[in-house]
């Protein structure tokens, strides 16, 4: 692979220093673990003059819990998150998703903020500079045509982070630092359905924290991929389900790997109120909702239709398991 282009690394110790460092250069990039960004830089995607390493900022570390919920620093590593037993007990899908990222060495380096801000991926994009040049580049970077959908006008590269769907089903909020100070918004509002501009972050903004409200729903995450480690998701699904008096009282489903953004499934309220020992018809309705809303394109080596079906199957499997556990608890 190509060597890295020359750049300087800034190591701010505070959020304010990081914001100031970003304002010194228009070509600066934030970095934490770098497990994805370093590969892209070596592929000639972007040429920052400064990388601002956020990991030295104390305020971006730590996981804390109180009655209102749990706050996770953006620089917490995926290995730390996956190994946090208290977090796994409260938000199982989050710990499961963290453990499903890459392989152990990626999780030791990769961070919560980095995984949420992961660049979108495509077989025409995650390639060496000479490969992309020989192919006329693409709409996402340096080119004008999307090779996945040449007649379209937008980039279809797929969001492939594992954490986002798990955090979405637990209704996470993110805290963002930037030149205007700190702001908070729903995690769902961080993303847009555009593979070339999927993050709604203004220049100089970066994630500082993720806030999870206290949640009595049980959750789980499942990921389809070619190998059991290293690979990005062909489809990843998180489901959170809460039962009350033997009925499904809350159901949230979120999907990664199929769209340019992590997708929070709409229309799940139509599935509420069913007896918690859900039947095949209920699961069929859930599967149809997923199949209708996911938009996998030919961005991976496996067929888009497979990813559509596997996303639905994973959602059904997780929902059936969570409902089954709730049903047993109700009977007991």
């Amino acid at each position: 692979m190509e060597t890295l282009p020359p750049f300087r690394v800034a190591t701010p110790a505070t959020i304010a220093e990081a914001v100031a460092a970003a304002q010194e250069s228009r070509a600066a990039r934030f970095i934490a673990g770098g497990t994805d960004l370093m590969v892209n830089l070596r592929h000639g995607i972007g040429a920052p003059d400064v990388l601002i390493d956020l990991r030295g900022i104390v305020d971006l570390h730590g996981v804390w819990t109180d009655l209102a919920g749990t706050t996770v620093g953006a620089a917490v590593t995926l290995a730390e998150l996956a190994g946090d037993a208290a977090l796994a007990a409260r938000y199982p899908a989050v710990a499961e998703a963290a453990a499903a990222v890459g392989a152990p060495a990626h999780r030791e380096a990769g961070t919560v903020g980095g995984n949420l801000c992961l660049d979108t991926r495509c077989v025409f994009y995650n390639r060496s500079a000479w490969w992309r040049e020989a192919n006329g580049f693409c709409l996402k970077h340096q080119g004008s045509v999307c090779h996945v959908a040449p007649t379209g006008t937008r980039c279809h590269a797929a969001f492939s982070g594992d954490l986002a769907p798990a955090l979405l089903v637990h209704d996470a909020t993110v805290e963002i630092a930037g030149p205007q100070g700190l702001r908070r918004q729903a995690l769902d509002a961080l993303y847009a359905e555009d593979g070339a501009a999927h993050l709604r972050l203004a220049p100089g903004e970066f994630l500082t924290r993720v806030i999870l409200p206290a949640d009595s729903a049980r959750s789980a995450y499942a990921k389809a991929r070619a190998r059991a480690a290293i690979d990005f998701p062909l489809a990843g699904v998180a489901v959170a389900l809460r039962a009350e008096a033997g009925r499904v009282a809350a159901l949230r489903v979120a999907i990664t790997g199929t769209n340019a953004r992590p997708l929070l499934l709409a229309g799940t309220e139509a599935l509420l109120g069913a007896a918690v020992d859900v039947d095949a018809a209920w699961l069929e309705r859930l599967g149809k909702l997923v199949q209708k809303q996911v938009q996998p394109m030919r961005t991976t080596l496996l067929a888009a239709q497979y990813r559509r079906r596997v996303a639905a199957a994973l959602a059904q499997r997780l929902a059936a398991t969570l409902a089954g556990a709730a049903s047993q608890a109700h009977a007991a």
Binding site: M1, G34, T35, R42, A105
Partner: peptide, 27 residues
Amino acid sequence: CDGGECGACTVLIDGRPRLACLTRAQE
């Protein structure tokens, strides 16, 4: 692989496994 996909460059940093092809010496 030289791109974070094969583990051949695994080293330990503070006792934890890390990929030397994705890590800068500076860090």
